[in-house]
Amino acid sequence: MAKAYRLIFDENLCIGCQACNVACRLENDVPEGVYRLQVHVTTQGVFPHLGMHFERRSCVMCDEPPCVSVCPTGASFQSKDGLVHIHESQCITCKYCILACPYHARFINPLKNVVEKCTFCFDSRLSKALDPACVSVCTTEALRFGDVSQENSAVAMLSRKETLLFPKAHLGTKPKVCFIPARKGVKV
């Protein structure tokens, strides 16, 4: 049966420590200077009425991925589990998908000269029933990953309990990565 993966990022727990960022580099051998994953931390408001915003910058694994529909060679494709991947050999690096991604999740691997992005660590971890590297190392367990169609999975339970926000939901991309927004601090 096809999986319904979901990754939940709890902004309330995230402390912006970048463990996920480094874990991703180590696990996936991401070349120097480029990132599959970063967490951007921004301060909002006017002193002393402030809020802190934590934003996970990475592929959100759309159910309706614009990067796949624009790809002229089929190098960008969606697996039967709905994960978006790239066939390196078929990528001509036309960069159309990079421009099509509303999440700015794609970039060119400067060593291989092909387009690259987060894969949920599919080859090295997920296909072996391991959580993606970022989820596994998260210092404060702010990341939860699993199959939302399994009623008893952590993500399914969390999804029932919390109000989830899907990034740029209005675009209709239906991301598999979603977040629990911060409850504290000034919102702008």
Binding site: D10, N12, L13, I15, F47, M52, T140, K184, G185
Partner: peptide
């Protein structure tokens, strides 16, 4: 981790005194 869980729990209260808006202060 214990502190993060504490800070994220709506039924608990965290007061931070710091001249700087640190991550801790943000929580």
């Amino acid at each position: 981790k214990a502190m993060a869980r504490f800070a994220a729990n709506p039924s608990k209260k965290l007061i931070v005194l710091d001249p700087r808006f640190s991550i801790m202060a943000g929580k």
